[in-house]
Design a binder for these strands. Structure first.
Length: 553
RNA sequence: GCGCCUGUAGCUCAGUUGGAUAGAGCAACGGACUUCUAAUCCGUAGGUCAGAGGUUCGAAUCCUCUCAGGCGUGCCA
């Protein structure tokens, strides 16, 4: 609907420009929006104010010119008014609103989709947790945000790939092997000192005891290096399996699992370092190899190869992003914990060093999650291994509530996750409130079916849907495609969560004021079609969030 | 020290890239069940948008400074 209004405004402006009444480019930067106050109509545009200085006319004067054009569009508008400093307000004809119901019934699960992304190839890389421990609650937020963003961008017409980068090589993997071996030997009273900064979690002991079932005391006889290797490989595989299980249960899907070690196998890291060298972007100093990130606005140059000859984490990461670019993605979205924000400038520098536009790279930073139970914060510390795992959260509140809660805040805002609230089966809990709206509609449709009634748009007397209550509900349904475009454009999936709450609220209000199935009159069919459309949009939006739409509760 | 993020109703947070009288949910208070699910709805109250300047027709939004909280500032990953 917003599209339609925008097109009408644009064509009116173009018309006036052709007739010399407005200077060229007057429509630039103007917006069409929904006014906060319903009295101003359904949509409004600020174009007269925006173009006033360039046209050397007063906003009101321009507004009345445009109004003159748009008033002729009585196929669209029942009223066009000028208000305030120069807003042009539109009231859309009821018939047009009712056509939204046709769209929903025709498009079904595809309602909300658009061609906004024009098929551009996008990659979203998220979670990418090291296979050194189970997913914790912070990964859960990243997983929910990333997965929902992927789903949203698909509906917005992008070709999207979801990828998980597995850091399956490097110091932390050796540390993992050492940690497991240490716990393994403890089980035979042949303890070796636990490595400094080793992985402390209980899961390490579990893995160690699994190794005793497989190998008995066999690992004791191996030389140290060999034993660490066995422990490392087993632990990494076992932990990664666990991560995959958790993600499946969390309804999070990946198209590709990208192994860091494959970059070395295919000499991608060397090639990348060579590329930087020949581009004159790296240099030796103090026995280390440096990357001139300052050339691209970073505050200091960064080390690629350390004095001891080993590479930093950064080096393969550049190779990894080079590989992404080679795979043809025009938009690369990395979802990281907010504690990595210092890493963004150097990664953006790397993208530019690889001859790509800095705008093609987007880092979405996910802020911390803190848990609250009984109104008190739950303490968490990664260092001591006392973090709360995603699995524990899913066991306690379930997938639906967890996904909604992780998505109900903007990414860069701290999230307070109230475990008690997430479990409540009352209106206080937004997940429940939204799912209940869906279940209620299904119940109505079941009752209608018993009377032999099924929603059928072709049997509807459309004038019966022109009541304010009906139109209020339809207007919320009509904004859904716009919400999805804005989510995709701004990479802000939380807006779907807010939209769902708004739609559910509007439905419950409608439900309390209007009886859908009444004994007499054709209004029943009209309202059945209306609530069925609400059901469809609830289903579509919940699907994007990975939340079940229950038919009864 | 420098940099990034955050600061909006009692609480948790939105605010469509600068628009009209700043919104929602929860909590509080007062109402609504002869009813398709009251697991709901309606109403009331609640604000110096952290503070001070500035930019302009117009600022929660942009710029500068101050304050508060979080994070970063590794040849860790």
């Amino acid at each position: 609907m917003k599209d339609t209004i925008e097109r009408a405004v644009t064509s009116a402006v173009e018309d006036l420009t052709k007739r010399g009444l407005l200077p060229p480019g007057s429509g630039d930067a103007a917006t069409v929006s929904i006014p906060q106050n319903k009295e101003f109509g359904d949509y409004a545009t600020n174009i007269a104010m925006i173009s006033a200085s360039r046209a050397k006319k007063s906003p009101r004067e321009i507004a009345s010119l445009i109004r003159g054009e748009l008033e002729q569009r009585n196929d669209l508008f029942s009223e066009v008014t000028i208000a305030g400093p120069g807003f042009i307000n539109f009231t859309v004809r009821p018939e047009l609103w009712i056509k939204v119901l046709d769209d929903i019934h025709e498009q079904g699960t595809a309602y909300g989709c658009s061609a906004y992304g024009q098929g551009r190839k996008v990659q979203v890389e998220f979670v990418s947790a090291n296979p050194t421990g189970p997913l914790h609650i912070g990964h859960g937020r990243g997983a929910a945000v990333g997965d929902t963003l992927v789903r949203i961008m698909k509906t917005a017409g992008y070709e999207v790939q979801a990828e998980y980068y597995i850091n399956d090589i490097g110091n932390q993997m050796n540390l993992l092997g050492l940690s497991v071996l240490s716990r393994y030997r403890e089980l035979f009273d042949q303890g070796i000192s636990f490595p400094e900064n080793g992985y402390q979690g209980e899961y390490i002991r579990t893995i160690a005891s699994e190794l005793t079932r497989i190998h008995g005391e066999g690992l004791l006889a191996l030389d140290h290096h060999e034993a660490v290797h066995v422990c490392r490989e087993y632990a990494a595989r076992s932990i990664l399996e666990g991560i995959k299980d958790d993600l499946i249960r969390f309804e999070v899907h990946f198209d590709n699992w990208f192994s860091e070690s494959s970059l070395y196998d295919q000499h991608k890291v060397d090639e990348t370092l060579e590329h930087l060298k020949t581009s004159g972007l790296s240099y030796e100093n103090d026995g280390a190899l440096w990357f001139r990130t300052t050339r691209f606005g970073d505050e200091k140059d960064r080390v690629l190869r350390k004095q001891d000859g080993s590479l930093t984490y950064f080096a393969p990461d550049i190779a990894y992003h080079r590989d992404k670019l080679e795979r043809g993605f025009t938009k690369i979205i990395d979802i990281w914990g907010a504690d990595h924000h210092g890493y963004v400038p150097r990664m953006r520098a790397a993208i530019q060093a690889l001859d790509s536009e800095p705008e093609s790279f987007h880092a979405l930073l996910i802020q911390l999650v803190s848990l609250v139970r009984d109104g008190k914060p739950v303490s968490m510390s990664t260092r001591s291994g006392e973090f709360v795992t995603l699995r524990e959260i899913l066991d306690e509140v379930g997938t639906d509530a967890a996904r909604y809660f992780f998505l109900m805040r903007r990414c860069d805002s701290h999230l307070v996750f109230d475990l008690d609230l997430a479990k409540k089966k009352t209106e206080e809990n937004p997940v429940f409130y939204i799912q209940y709206a869906h279940a209620r509609i299904c119940s109505i449709l079941r009752n209608a079916a018993e009377l032999g009634l099924a929603p059928d748009m072709s049997q509807v007397d459309r004038t019966l849907l022109e009541q304010d209550d009906d139109l209020d509900l339809i207007k919320v349904l009509a904004t859904y495609p716009d919400v999805l475009v804005s989510c995709a454009a701004d990479l802000e999936p939380h807006r779907v969560a807010f939209y769902l709450l708004e739609l559910a609220t509007e439905f419950h209000r409608f439900y309390n004021k209007n009886r859908v199935i009444s004994e007499s009159g054709p209004g029943t069919m009209a309202r059945l079609v209306l609530v069925d459309a609400v059901r469809q949009v609830l289903v579509n939006a919940l699907a994007l969030m990975g939340i079940v739409a229950p038919e009864s509760m």
